[in-house]
Write a protein that binds this DNA or RNA. Structure first.
Lengths: 228, 228
DNA sequence: TTGCAAACGTCATAATTATTACACTTTTTT
DNA sequence: AAAAAAGTGTAATAATTATGACGTTTGCAA
């Protein structure tokens, strides 16, 4: 089902993922020597991790694509996230006290995963400083990202969310392009698209911003700043 | 302002914080030998970290209390979090790519902090495996916590949030006590308290749950499960 | 070029939630 | 024991948002 495959096959591929790319060229052979791993291949639709099961290993997706879904307990599924190779999976859970996965991970493409036992990860982190630092950065960045998103979603009104988001995205510029569609924005904010557009147009009517499809002009930065 | 203080003073106190408590007794003297740190004392109202400044060190609060606030850019402040000794501060940001603090940290009590440079933290993690593991757990737990909270807040209606929250809190039991007040619940959900109570009472009227102040009885688990 | 799908802006109506205020109970402080 | 504070349940009204639908524009593929 999940046959062991000679090191030459996929182990080198892990150096393309952001966790391992930090390991210097000259240490990579040593790193591979110290690496204990198995390679697993999945077809489209195969289940990699079941909701509720425990993470005892680090999973690195070296090829393919995985989506994580949450069962609604009533049978329906909700897509949570999409992950493309090369990337590590669920780094946040491998070391947490309750390391049961809150989601199921399912391949949306034929995929290849490199699986490294937790103990081996500890070992590698202690021996390869760059690996440890990359790992810490990776998890820390996730904390930052989640904190940011949480702050956004926690704002009560669409107006506040929108003001906060636009100020962030503007990066100080007075004219910029939205990176995502209004539909995606609405999903990001957890609100409906018509409601989002309505609020946006209200702000435009008030002369606070200019809206032309993806192009946003900030006309009154102070007003935006006072909205959250 | 922040005088160096002999090791005997507060360095031992760090072993009470969850990051360092994992270091075995017999290694603690060595650990202190390897530790590079300074001790800072603050009065009530003193600012420990300014919004926007960079984290270059690990801060461990060994005595007192710190609140983090976010400036609303219009001058007002919003309380974000409260932190009591003994605990580490902002572990999520020390290692992230953008390590600027999104909040200001201000002492609400006279406090003592042990400050450890990032480089020294790296060194300690590599030398003391338990410390490294504790650190990883700490950050990972934060990821889990934030993910959880994000999922909760992202649910659209109060009904959905409440159902989700009650199922989590019930832990399978049909009768349990809420750990926080309705007011705190409302804040956690980012909704108003009357609205929360109203929805709660509606669910009680429908015979799905029983509510008597903090005491909750789950009468129809399936109905709750189908609400989000 | 045409045709099509996605994204966009808009609207009326229904549903949900916020706001503000009040009475009551429980817990804590004095 | 009395007073103060915190927590609880309720209600009317206002504000916000969701829903579902529609026509238009844009970008892309055939």
């Amino acid at each position: 089902m999940h046959p062991m495959i000679p090191p030459t096959d996929h182990s080198r591929a892990i150096f393309q993922c952001p966790l391992c790319s930090s390991v210097p060229e000259e240490q990579r052979d040593d790193f591979l020597e110290d690496l204990r791993y198995s390679v697993r291949r999945y077809e489209k639709g195969d289940v990699v991790v079941t909701q509720g099961s425990r993470y005892e290993s680090l999973y690195i997706l070296v090829k393919g694509e995985v989506v994580t879904e949450m069962a609604d307990e009533k049978g329906d599924f909700m897509k949570v996230e999409q992950l493309r190779a090369p990337n590590p999976m669920a780094t946040g859970f491998l070391f947490s006290n309750d390391n049961r996965s809150p989601v199921s991970a399912i391949c949306s493409q034929p995929s290849v995963l490199v699986v490294i036992p937790r103990e081996n990860v500890y070992f590698l982190m202690r021996k390869y400083e760059e690996f440890m630092m990359a790992f810490l950065s990776y998890i820390s960045n996730k904390v930052s990202f989640l904190s940011e998103k949480l702050r956004l979603v926690s704002l009560r009104t669409i107006r506040a969310k929108l003001a906060y988001y636009l100020l962030k995205e503007s990066a100080g510029e007075s004219r910029f392009l939205l990176k995502i569609s209004k539909e995606e924005m609405a999903r990001l904010f957890s609100v409906s698209r018509p409601a989002l557009v309505k609020v946006m147009m209200e702000m435009a009517d008030e002369g606070i911003i200019g809206v032309d499809r993806r192009e946003i002009t900030i006309q009154n930065r102070k007003a935006l700043q006072s909205m959250f």
